[in-house]
Design a protein around this nucleic acid. Sequence first.
DNA 1: CGAATCTTTGAAGAATGTCAAAAGCTGTGG
DNA 2: CCACAGCTTTTGACATTCTTCAAAGATTCG
Lengths: 228, 228
Amino acid sequence: MTLACDTCPVRAKAACSALTDEERSALARLGRTRELKRGERLFAAGDEITACATLIEGALKVAATDAEGNESILALVHPAGFIGEMFAPFPSYEVTALTDSRVCQFSRAHLEAAVERHPALGIALLQRAQEDLHSARELLDLSRRKTAAARVAGLILAFARAASDSPCHPAESFDLPLTRGEMAAMLGLTIETVSRQLGELEAMGAIARKGARGIALVTPAQLGELAV
Amino acid sequence: MTLACDTCPVRAKAACSALTDEERSALARLGRTRELKRGERLFAAGDEITACATLIEGALKVAATDAEGNESILALVHPAGFIGEMFAPFPSYEVTALTDSRVCQFSRAHLEAAVERHPALGIALLQRAQEDLHSARELLDLSRRKTAAARVAGLILAFARAASDSPCHPAESFDLPLTRGEMAAMLGLTIETVSRQLGELEAMGAIARKGARGIALVTPAQLGELAV
DNA sequence: CGAATCTTTGAAGAATGTCAAAAGCTGTGG
DNA sequence: CCACAGCTTTTGACATTCTTCAAAGATTCG
């Protein structure tokens, strides 16, 4: 499958935007796009072949699964996000599609060569890695909040900010991008506790719900206080 | 204070090892070393000036503190580790010395210029950022283990591996680098729970303790099972 | 429309947090 | 060398929160 960088929806935001059109085209010939259906796995922990990818559309999750099958979600990946460990011997975590997705995938060797040839690409990847590090630390902080109420309130605020066009103000209403189980796996709680906390938040008038996924922020300030 | 790269104990491992001696000397003239006593802060969240640093000796912690003064430890930094967000507008977290430490500090502007001039430095920083990301995700996974026993057992194993010379086998005996309170802040538990779990681990014969900090691994396999 | 999945709700039990106090360790100064 | 002050660690009893187990209600999608 051939890459069509010219019509790529993330061509302005992805790491490859650090390259000129010709440089990007040369890199494109070494990669390929891959379509993933919801629930399909892009990488698995321990895979022998290590690849890297940029998410074009959809959403992915990075997760660890323990022996009993409990999943711990370590990161969400949005379009233009980069996935892949360029220096580790093999992938450490599973990467799975949350919704139908499309990625632009490269072998690690090709990407390494491109980074050596084009310093700007390395800088773009460095920026992305530092942003990912920041996100991981935010999630770490959120996952350790003392009460379940603080964790759920904080997650809803995070989703509201991500759903908003403006960087400052959270969206007033939006759809939760995750199931209860996935929210639980992001917060270190059980499905039931997440469900009950959402009910509490609605009962106390901080949010309103429409169906299982729809959320409206009634009192954002109250949410912020609950999130501590 | 002038930098003495020639005698720097981390000259072979730090990011600046990607540079030639002359390049490093040029960069060195723009930086300065700084000594920190135990508990002293290197950066605070919200500081206006953003700086970057390499740890030369000692140990640092990256932490977030909430309104009630509860600390959540997001990362430990060992010698040759790099600290600093090169692309964020201001530092997001506090960086504090766990023990008396010495760092090699640069302004962000100088470091950015050096990265543009020396692509190998950018690649070295990229590798470090991806390693830090990996560590953050490991800690995230550890912090979400269901039981306090699994978290404490996992942390002890992580310390044992860090204390070992060989990368494969954990050290058989070592000193805990953190207080109970700091361990609690790494795991999302209370001091009392950490203390009780250590007692349990000793009572069941997985570890032996010598004083408040000394640990000997009696049954590493048992620890591994407890850590799930 | 029906099957599968996801969500909600309830009741009971286990685990951790909280509060309080004793014991151990460390470093300073007499 | 000892004594003391300050800090860290341990231990106990109790309250609270979360998890577990179970089952019924929604929602989604073929």
